Simulated scan of single mutants.
Amino acid sequence: MLKITSTTDPRLARLPPAIRIVVTNQLLALRSTCRGDPDPEKDGFVGYVEPQDTPQSVESAIGLSLSQIEGVFLDGGCMVGVILWGNSGAGVSLVCPQSFAHALQVAQQLREHLPSKESSDERSLQP
């Protein structure tokens, strides 16, 4: 999993354009919440779930259980899972592409938190 806190992170260039847009939008939302450059320890970060990631590797990277997901929404071909650290808005946004073979176990856990309409829309994209 990639932990990203800046729109100038050079690793963003490796992501496909559609996914880069989703990650960048989440970074801009994080910047807006913390009113400037986020401190990953205090304000949170955006986590890009890589194809080989497992629930265990993601949990290790974020330091939290995926059972703490507050909600998931769809954005630009990705599921975005939100884990808040408290009432301040700080936390983690997990971006996981909806591609069929992308981090299957992580995607399944995110899918379980989709609202029912989005979940059925997402299933219709599966082969």
Rank of each mutant, 00 (worst) to 15 (best):
Q98E: 09
S65Y: 00
L30A: 10
S88Q: 11
K42W: 08
P51L: 09
D121Y: 04
K117E: 11
T7L: 09
D43A: 07
T7A: 06
A103F: 05
M1L: 06
F45N: 03
Q126P: 03
P17K: 14
C78G: 04
H102S: 01
V95C: 12
T8I: 02
S124P: 01
V72M: 09
S88C: 08
M79K: 12
L94V: 04
T8E: 08
A103Q: 08
I62K: 01
T8G: 06
A61L: 11
D53R: 00
E70N: 13
G77F: 13
S93Q: 13
S32T: 14
K42I: 11
L28P: 00
V80M: 08
K117V: 13
S116R: 04
T8C: 01
C34W: 08
I69K: 02
G91K: 05
C34K: 13
L30K: 13
G77H: 03
R35M: 10
G71K: 05
M79I: 00
Q68N: 09
L15P: 00
N25W: 00
S6M: 02
L64V: 04
D39F: 09
L110S: 03
I19R: 11
G63S: 01
P115H: 13
Q98L: 15
E122T: 07
G76T: 03
V49A: 08
H113V: 01
S120L: 15
P38F: 09
L125C: 11
G76R: 05
P55E: 14
E122A: 15
L74R: 14
S93L: 01
E41Q: 14
S88G: 11
G86I: 08
D75V: 00
E122R: 13
I21E: 15
G71E: 14
R35A: 14
F45Y: 14
A107N: 11
P16Q: 14
V22M: 07
C34V: 14
Q126Y: 11
P127C: 07
V49F: 06
